[in-house]
C-alpha cells in the first residue's frame, strides 16, 4: 500500500472514530510549517482529520502526549511508538481501553541531518525528497540525485528489529520487515567501547559541557513521565540545575537508568537535542544492556511486569562477590 493510500485510510478511520465518539482526541501528524517537517496534530474536531498525513518524516513519538491528555485517545503509532504506548500501559500510566492505536508499519524515516550532511546543503535549500522502496531521489535546484535509502535513514530505523506495531486496533498497511545488513553512522557504541576508559570519560565530559539543560531530551521522551523529576528536587538537591558538565552527565546517566526497560529506541532524544549531543549512544547502549542481561525488550507485552519490578530467582549475578 502506498503512502497516500495509507493516509486516506487513516483519515477515514480517524474521522469515523471521532464521529462515533469512540475517542475524544485524535493524535496524529500534520504537515509542518517548515520544508520536509511534520508536526504533531492533537485535535477533538473531526474536520481536522483531513490534515492527517503519513510520509517519511513523521518522526515524533506521539505517545508522550498520552500521559497528559485526559479521556479516550486515538493515536497514530509507528513500531517504536506503539511499543512506547505498551510500555506506558505496563506502568499503569494509561489504560489499554482508553487508547485506540492506529498502527503504521514503519518503512524507516529519513533523517534530515544526514541528508544535510550528505549534500552539505541545508534542509530549505533542497527541492524535493521522494522515496521509492530502497532508493531516495533528492532534487537540488532542478537536478535529481539518487542515493540508497540506508544512507539517509535514522540510525534507530536502520537497527530497528520490530518496525510493525505489535499492539494495535487498526493496522494501516501490510506488516514490513526490518531493514537488513546496515551499519549505523552516528551512534558509535562499538567505537566507544573500544576506546580506553580515560578517553571515554573525557569524550562524555566534552559532550556534556555543551549541554544547556533545556530538558528537551527528557520532555520528548514518553518513558520520562515523572510528575517531578529528580533534577527539580531541592531537598535534597542531588544535582544542581546549572549546566555544569558534572551535573549534566549525572542527569543523563540517571535518566537512562530510570528509563531502562521503558526506552524503545525511538531516537527522539538525539534528534531534538539542539546541541547535537549523541544521546542515542547512551540510550541504545542501555537498550542493549537490558536486552543482553535480561532478554527484555521494552513494550512488547502489555501484561508483562516492567523490567525493574520483576526478577528471576537466578540471573546476572557474576559481578556479585
Amino acid at each position: 500500500m502506498k503512502n497516500n493510500e495509507i493516509q486516506q485510510r487513516l483519515r477515514q478511520e480517524a474521522k469515523t472514530l471521532l464521529e462515533q465518539g469512540q475517542v475524544e482526541y485524535i493524535v496524529g501528524y500534520e504537515t509542518g510549517s517548515l520544508k520536509f517537517t511534520t508536526t504533531p496534530l492533537l485535535t477533538k474536531n473531526k474536520d481536522d482529520t483531513d490534515r492527517l498525513i503519513v510520509n517519511p518524516f513523521i518522526v515524533n513519538n506521539l505517545s508522550v502526549y498520552l500521559t497528559e491528555i485526559k479521556g479516550k485517545v486515538g493515536i497514530v503509532a509507528k513500531g517504536c511508538d506503539s511499543r512506547s504506548v505498551v510500555s506506558l500501559i505496563q506502568d499503569n500510566k494509561i489504560a489499554r481501553e482508553d487508547i485506540v492505536i492506529m498502527g503504521i508499519p514503519c518503512p524507516g524515516l529519513i533523517d534530515l541531518k544526514k541528508v544535510e550532511l550528505l549534500l552539505s546543503k541545508d534542509r530549505d535549500e533542497l527541492g524535493n525528497i521522494t522515496r521509492d522502496e530502497d532508493r531516495v531521489v533528492i532534487t537540488i535546484d532542478g537536478k535529481g540525485r539518487d542515493f540508497p535509502i540506508t544512507e539517509v535513514l535514522f540510525d534507530n530505523c536502520l537497527e530497528c528489529q520490530i518496525p510493525t506495531p505489535q499492539e494495535y486496533d487498526i493496522l494501516l498497511g501490510e506488516p514490513t520487515t526490518p531493514i537488513s545488513g546496515n551499519v549505523s553512522k552516528r551512534t558509535n557504541i562499538k567505537e566507544l567501547e573500544a576506546t580506553p576508559r580515560e578517553e571515554r570519560w573525557n569524550f562524555w565530559k566534552e559532550e556534556f559541557s555543551r549541554c544547556i539543560r533545556c530538558y528537551a531530551c527528557r520532555n520528548v521522551c514518553p518513558a520520562c513521565f515523572c510528575q517531578r523529576c529528580f533534577v527539580e528536587e531541592s531537598e535534597p538537591q542531588w544535582i544542581l540545575p546549572t549546566p555544569k558538565w558534572q551535573d549534566n552527565l549525572i542527569f543523563q546517566v540517571i535518566r537512562n537508568i530510570h528509563v531502562a526497560g521503558r526506552c524503545t529506541d525511538c531516537g527522539e532524544c538525539e534528534r531534538v537535542c539542539p546541541m547535537n549531543i549523541p544521546l542515542r549512544s547512551l540510550t541504545r547502549k542501555m537498550y542493549e544492556i537490558v536486552d543482553e542481561l535480561f532478554q527484555y525488550k521494552a513494550g512488547m507485552d502489555k501484561n508483562a511486569l516492567p523490567l525493574l519490578t520483576a526478577y528471576e530467582p537466578t540471573e546476572a549475578e557474576d559481578f556479585i562477590r
Partner: peptide, 15 residues
Amino acid sequence: RRRMAITKKFLEYIG
C-alpha cells in the same frame, strides 16, 4: 541485583 547489574555495566560504559 537487577538495578546493580545495569548500573554497573552502564557506568563502565560511561568511563
